[in-house]
């Protein structure tokens, strides 16, 4: 565990908590893409099946369980509890255009053709693009509440910090994973436009 990895995980956790709190406190999920949230639930489910097969540490298991629970909790709040506030008219990104290519790509480009490995690869590919419905929604409505912006900033920072973690691990442990690195870079690049707006708006005010 290095500092970049830890900061990345904290940033990821923060993003999820910000989202849950926003929905809970305002009793509304307006401006949040349910489709992105469903994709994230698929991502965590596919990746964290290893909870059943390998134990790394308490930290590792607890974080995985928290991500899973928070993700399904968010879906429950959006699609059941505060369903009336869900802005489905603006949440129209066709997720099959993301899921199908990711399925295909994970079958073609993976480290090992085994079920768990393919699911892991699929989750990495899908995670890299899972935010697109949310970014599409923000661009469609032309604005995001500041709390939604904080959520996006924290979520985007997480993968950017993981890239620094991978650079560190490459030098410190001579270890790298091409699939994770390429997908992580794609994921971070997708946030760049948003990062730019977030920082400039943050500095220069509304």
């Amino acid at each position: 565990m290095n500092v970049f990895r830890l900061l990345g995980d904290i940033s990821h956790l923060l993003a999820i908590i910000i989202l849950l709190l926003k929905i809970w406190k305002t009793r509304s999920c307006a401006g949040i893409s349910g489709r992105s949230q469903v994709l994230f639930a698929v991502v965590y489910t596919a990746r964290y099946l290893d909870l059943f097969t390998s134990y790394i540490s308490a930290y590792n298991s607890i974080m995985k369980l928290v991500f899973l629970a928070a993700s399904y909790g968010t879906i429950y709040l959006m699609f059941i509890k505060f369903k009336a506030s869900y802005d489905h008219n603006h949440d129209t990104f066709r997720i099959e255009f993301l899921i199908l290519p990711c399925v295909l790509l994970s079958l073609l480009i993976n480290h090992e053709f085994s079920p768990l490995e393919i699911l892991w690869t699929f989750s990495i590919y899908l995670e890299s693009v899972a935010i697109l419905p949310q970014l599409f929604m923000v661009s469609k409505t032309g604005e995001a509440e500041s709390i939604t912006s904080h959520y996006l900033f924290a979520l985007g920072s997480y993968r950017a910090l993981y890239i620094l973690n991978w650079i560190y691990r490459y030098y410190a442990e001579s270890h790298y994973d091409v699939i994770a690195i390429v997908a992580g870079i794609v994921q971070t690049v997708l946030y760049c436009d948003f990062f730019y707006l977030y920082i400039t708006k943050g500095i220069y005010g509304q």
Binding site: D9, D50, S54, I56, N60, K64, F67, Y162, H175, D177
Partner: peptide, 10 residues
């Protein structure tokens, strides 16, 4: 090595 990376990172 591959194994530990897989399951360790979130």
């Amino acid at each position: 090595i591959l194994e530990s990376f897989r399951h360790d990172e979130l």
